[in-house]
Design a protein around this nucleic acid. Structure first.
Lengths: 189, 189
DNA sequence: CAAACAAACTAACAAGTGTTAGTTTGTTAG
DNA sequence: CTAACAAACTAACACTTGTTAGTTTGTTTG
């Protein structure tokens, strides 16, 4: 178990605060208080508030990119690929609950990395849509606008971070199975 | 067609800015610039920045409460009730795209009205869950944790504001029908 | 022991924050 | 014509913001 550096600790605590109030509403003095030090001391470990946001968002966004690459490489059916994507979101979200909040709420406050983030996101969405279109063409998936299907599934997956912490006893395996059912087969009996 | 007051205009423009950067990152000077006046002049029409946020969020939250009351009053099947809720979200979201962003992102910045908002939201979620549980009991709906079903459907519906504006040509009737299919019957053929 | 280092501190800065007070301007109603 | 009003303005306030400079403290390493 690798020891957490002071910098990593600051970034982790910052993500937690960002989830509660959003990037703009969290001051360096808030963050310092949460770390039990003075605001100026933070700068021994980090370069700027913006750098903290970048670290949080870009590292997670790249995890999704890596995950999607691996899904695309598999030669499973489209429905199987969808299930892999669902599992990917459950895994990343459960391991980065606070970071996911920053990614969803505060990406627009990125500065130098804004375009990089946007590229990663639009590539991800395009890959997702491609999988759905293949499923429609092969007859696995209903013939409804792929945009609407992607939106529907992806927004649920992107909001997992809001919900996972509420039920601490939730079994992630069970959650994944339930989402597979609901997102793919619907709720009707 | 009722003429928009200056106050309503300010609130409408504020909601637009809040969607782009969030409540905390929008300054009264930003808002004034968008209105082509000076920041101090805003205070001839509104009491405070906080008041603007309250107006936006509470008015929409109450629309949902009214809508849910009407759904509960109908004696349709649970699946039909679900479809009514979907239609409710499409309607309110399409008519309040910017306000929905504030409601989803900035509710935690409410001050005196925070508890009021939270109550409206938790009542809404409880009513939603009750409908699902009735559906499970009557055999209309699959027997999966109602919490997970509600989360899945509701997060998609709550995020509609992110997506509706992108396709200006989207037919709302068609969108509603597609969501009915996807959220209720899933995407599998 | 001495040098190096990690990590905290105090003090201060320039810029930006929401908001108030008091005033001016142009339009509408008696 | 004048009184009333809506809606803008300038100037300023007290406070908060992210950040820098320079210093102190205690621990680790040669």
């Amino acid at each position: 178990m690798k020891q957490e550096t002071r910098q990593e600790e600051i970034i982790r605590v910052a993500a937690k605060l960002f989830k509660e109030k959003g990037y703009s509403a969290v001051t360096m003095r808030d963050l310092a208080t949460a770390m039990n030090i003075k605001a100026a001391s933070l700068y021994n470990h980090i370069n700027s508030k913006q750098d903290i946001l970048e670290s949080i968002i870009i590292s997670i966004a790249e995890k999704f990119t890596v995950g999607m690459t691996s899904v695309l490489a598999s030669n499973a059916t489209c429905i199987e690929k969808l299930k892999e994507i669902i599992a990917l979101h459950v895994e990343i979200s459960s391991q980065n609950i606070y970071g996911m909040a920053a990614l969803n709420h505060d990406w627009m406050h990125l500065e130098s990395q804004l375009n990089h983030y946007k590229k990663l996101r639009s590539d991800y969405e395009n890959d997702f849509k491609t999988i759905l279109i293949e499923g429609v063409n092969s007859g696995e998936i209903i013939d409804i606008k792929p945009d609407v299907m992607m939106f529907s599934i992806l927004t649920t997956l992107r909001s997992l971070y809001l919900w996972i912490p509420k039920k601490e006893d939730v079994n992630l395996k069970e959650l994944t199975n339930n989402l597979n059912e609901i997102l793919i087969k619907g709720v009707v009996k």
